[in-house]
Amino acid sequence: MSDQSESGPQVSFGAYVKPETVQEAPEAEAIALPFISARRQPRLDAPVPAPPQRINPAFVAMSLIGVLTFLLGVMVTLYLSKSPQAEMALALPDAAISELNPVPQKVPTDVLAAVVTASLEGGVTRNAPSDLITPSGSMSQPQTDGLSMNEILLGLTPERAVAGAAAQQGKAVLGRDKLWLLRERVLSGNYTVKTVERHGRERLRLRIPTGNVTPDEAADLIMRAVERGEIALPPSLSTADGSFDADTLIFNLVQTSLANDGTEAGKRAAEEMSRRAFAASVAKSKKVTEGRIYVVEPGDSLAYISLQFYGRPSSYLKIFEANRAILKSPDRIQIGQRLIIPS
């Protein structure tokens, strides 16, 4: 507050070169990098030390099989529930679904690691609990949470990056999904990121001008899955007024899948999404020495705030880390809270 004059009326001909403001533009590169680098070194260099006890590899394999079986079940249910036989799908016993699961040892860990890193809740797995995201114990089921998002992402990953029977199954289910079509639209540049009035507030959303696939439908799909308890709520997408930010989830799913598909076109499309979202943001803030101060509004999730200031929901950790003093976990943001947005 005391440095309002910083951005205030000090512009004079001699004062254009302001060392403090010069630094902002190159940030975008810095944000994009962790995606690529973190993929190869999963969390070992995280500032928080890994849990001391060793985990039996056999146990890890077993639990991985278990988790994957569960996820395939979720995917099949998701897919079937869109069809008229929705009731039937939900009534299928777990055993019947698990038969669809092929030899799970062949899981492409590389792709899995990539989507784990990329997804909003990246790194939240049983054998590598990330204290970066939530202080331990504050989330009820972090494992399924992270991985169910990853599976959706897996379906969005292009064919050549997806190997193995399990992944092929995932692609067969989700490749026809609306999310996939959405991603193709964004890749072709045929979309806008605009503010739309929602519950009396201007909200940033991904818009597809024409066609039978809309982000709204995809968001509805996700919301229904959330309501049925098939997808756990990622904490960064919990809003300040206690609901779930499906719009930002859709944006993030499309963006991270593009950013991680390994192609130059995909990377460029993901960056273009960032630019469009950033330019369209209506969030107001005040400049301070540490960055900016933003006051949380109803409907905001941490990921949405990140989208508005960094152009990507997945950079929410940057905001979370800067506000550790007042935020216990990413889902604990409250209306009226004054968050520091690091520049």
Partner: peptide, 25 residues
């Protein structure tokens, strides 16, 4: 070369060559 810096001095936010004017004076 000053344009971006001037715009930021006027309160705009910058990212990757794009400007946001929500905080602009």
């Amino acid at each position: 070369k000053f344009r971006a810096e001037i715009l930021q001095a006027l309160g705009t936010r910058a990212l990757d060559g794009v400007f946001n004017f929500a905080d602009a004076q």
